[in-house]
Each structure stands twice: as structure tokens, then as C-alpha cells.
Amino acid sequence: MNDLSNKILERINDEKLAPRPAWQFAWKNRIYWGLWALSLAFASAASSAILFSLANSGWEFSELTHDGTASFMLSVLPTVWIVVMGVVLFLAYENYRQTKHGYRIPFMVAVGLSLLGATVGGVVLYAAGIGQLVDEDFGGRFPAYKTVMARQQSSWVHPDRGLLAGEVMDVDGDFRSFRIKSFDGTIWILGGDDLTPKSRELLLRHKFVRVVGFMMDDGNGNLVFKPCFVFPWEIKGGVSDRLISVRMQERSEPPAVPVVPFERKIGAVRSTDCKGVRPYDYLRRLQDGQR
């Protein structure tokens, strides 16, 4: 034995050192794999929220709700979830790198594979309705975060732009009028004379609807909302219709005064006023495709 060997063995004896048990290292490795899997699960959850946000951004109505493609794209981009996904993917990579042979895989390959895993996981979770839970139940806990449904609801309570959405309260037998409680809690009594047959059908079938129309003078100096098209307010990738309905109702403020504005026109013949709604032909085609 040389000097250093003796010194080392002396220190091992004096300090009563012993090799750490193998199970500690095995567990350390397992913990890193566990943290990697957990990060990937979070990334999948964020991915499902991204898919839910994108699916429910109202692409088909972008021309009505936004001034241009750029402003629409900016408003629907689920930035928060994209950032969350990026952060957890980085954490996934860092944990993977700490596993026994994790360092051997290049950064881009490891992140690419994790991204693929998170996307596949996200699709599965989205299909199971988890995307909505993540966006609303988790994202909704942060006051500064506006869920995709909240954003959609606020952009659809703009009668001045011809947009109204909410819960159908009742429809009279011959469609002369129907009541809608919009998402801000106001109750609207609207005339249904100029509604297309398809709109009437959708009005009866769906509990929540979007109404496209325009504001007009009722002849007495009052502005009234004239409905032209009705579309169902559907949630893609949601948990269930029942749960969604309950949530929306809970969000609505209780109506203070159940009035205004009233669409006064009563008549059996549809006017041509709705022809002025743009893009009329597109809306007709879109409506024909609705179930």
C-alpha cells in the first residue's frame, strides 16, 4: 500500500465510513423517473387545456367577433397554458437528465419526445373532457386568468356589434318572441319573425345559443336588437352538457329588471332586414351545417 491508500483506508476506519446502500441509489433513480412522469402528466394537462382553448375559440365566428385575423389569433392564443407547458416540459427534461442514462439523449430529442408524449396525453385528456376542468377549475383559481369560456362569453355579449349569447328561457309557440338570459345576466325579449327556419329549430333544441343580429331603431327612438341567426352554444371537449349548463348559470348575475330591449315587430312575413348582416351568405351556410 502506498501513502495515499493508507491515508484513505485510515480515514475510512476512523470516520467509520461505509458504502451507502444500493437501495438509496435505486430510489434516487426512481424518484427522478417519477418526477419526470409527473412533469409529463402536468404537461399533458396543459396540453389538454391548450386544445380545449383552441377548440372553443370560436374560429367559425372570428369574422364577427374580431376586427381581423391578427387580433383574433392574438386573443385566442392560450399563452398561459403554452408557457405552463414549456416550463413543465423543461422540468421533465431536467428530471430525465438526472436519471441514470438520461444525459445520453440530446436536449432536442428529449424535449421533442416529451412534447410528443405531452401532446398525445393532451389529446387523450381533452377527449375525456379534462381540458375544460384544467382550464376552468385550475386556471379559474387565478383571478388574473380569464378562462376560454369567460373570454368567449364576454365577446358574445355585444349587442352593439350584433352579437348576443346566453340561455334560452322560453320561446312562444309561433316564434313571435323568445327570451334569452345573456351571459351578463340581462334578460332580453327578442322578436323571432325574421329568424330562419333553421334558427327556430336550433332555438328549440339548444339550451344555450348565440344570436347574430343587429341594432335598429324601433321607430320610437329606441334601439332594439333584431335577431337574424341562431347558433348553438356548444362546448367542444367539455365534461358534459349538464355540468357546463350549471357552470354557466352560476356565472350569470341574477337579472335585476327582466326587460329591454323588446323587438316589437310582429308579422308572419320575414323582412329583408337581415340581409344586411355581414357576412350573410357565410352565416347561412354555417347555419345549414349545424345540427
Binding site: 495515499l4 480515514r11 465510513l17 458504502p19 451507502r20 441509489f25 442514462h101
Partner: peptide, 20 residues
């Protein structure tokens, strides 16, 4: 160098079970 060397060997001994 001696200090660092001793640390290296003691750490190696303590972690022998980690050797892959």
C-alpha cells in the same frame, strides 16, 4: 491536489453501490 484527491476517493468509496 491532495485534498481534492482524498475527497474523490472517499466519495468514490461512499458511492461504490452507485457504480453503473
Amino acid at each position: 491536489t491532495e485534498d481534492v484527491l482524498q475527497n474523490i476517493f472517499l466519495k468514490t468509496y461512499r458511492n461504490l453501490n452507485e457504480f453503473d
